[in-house]
Computed example of a mutant assay.
Amino acid sequence: MTLDPAIAARLKRNADGLVCAVVQEHGTGEVLMVAWMNDEALHLTLSTRKGTYFSRSRQELWVKGETSGHTQKVHSVRLDCDGDTVLLTVEQTGPACHTGAHTCFDDRDLL
């Protein structure tokens, strides 16, 4: 399984071969989390409709909710104009954040 060459050609990856993934809740538009994807994670996300990411700390793929049960059903995936960020809209089951919060962006405003 490989990423569609037409999609791969549009991506601008960082030095580690990754693109940033911003994850929004379907329906509300609330930003739930930010993660990273390599080509395989993007391919798997597109083909399975399950949020699949690349862990920089573990250097491996992970499917959101695989161990926690807090899954993501992917509704849409869009690429930004620069090709360096993908935007996913998902149906989130359970909290999105590893802390147990609904979103990784807490309520402590900086400005």
Rank of each mutant, 00 (worst) to 15 (best):
T2E: 14
T2F: 10
T2V: 07
L3F: 03
A6E: 04
A6Y: 01
A6H: 00
A6K: 02
I7F: 03
I7Y: 02
A8Y: 00
A8H: 00
A9Q: 06
A9I: 00
A9E: 05
L11P: 01
K12W: 04
R13W: 08
A15K: 14
D16A: 07
D16E: 15
G17N: 07
G17P: 12
G17V: 02
V19S: 00
V19Y: 00
C20I: 06
A21I: 00
V22N: 07
V23N: 01
Q24K: 12
Q24V: 10
Q24M: 11
E25L: 04
H26K: 08
H26D: 09
H26C: 05
T28K: 10
T28N: 09
G29E: 10
G29I: 08
G29P: 11
G29M: 14
E30K: 00
L32H: 09
L32P: 13
V34C: 13
A35D: 15
A35M: 13
W36N: 12
W36S: 10
W36P: 11
M37P: 06
N38Y: 03
D39M: 00
E40W: 11
E40P: 12
A41E: 04
A41V: 04
L42A: 09
L42D: 03
H43I: 13
H43C: 15
L46K: 01
S47A: 15
S47I: 10
S47L: 10
T48L: 10
T48K: 10
T48E: 09
T48H: 06
R49A: 13
R49Y: 03
R49G: 06
K50A: 04
T52K: 08
T52L: 08
Y53I: 13
F54P: 13
F54K: 14
S57H: 15
S57L: 14
R58N: 15
Q59S: 15
W62H: 10
E66P: 02
T67A: 15
T67R: 15
T67W: 12
S68Y: 12
S68C: 08
S68Q: 05
T71P: 08
T71Q: 14
T71S: 08
T71K: 14
Q72T: 03
V74Q: 04
S76A: 15
S76P: 13
R78V: 11
D80A: 04
C81W: 00
C81P: 02
D82W: 04
D82P: 02
D82S: 05
D82Y: 07
G83T: 06
G83Q: 05
G83L: 04
D84V: 01
T85M: 06
V86C: 02
V86P: 00
L87K: 06
T89L: 09
T89Y: 06
T89W: 08
T89P: 03
T89I: 09
V90K: 00
E91R: 09
Q92W: 13
Q92A: 10
Q92P: 10
Q92E: 09
P95R: 04
C97E: 07
T99I: 09
A101F: 14
A101Q: 13
A101D: 15
H102L: 06
T103V: 05
T103H: 05
C104W: 05
C104Q: 06
D106Q: 11
D106F: 11
D107T: 11
D107K: 11
D107G: 12
D109I: 07
D109L: 07
L110V: 08
L110E: 09
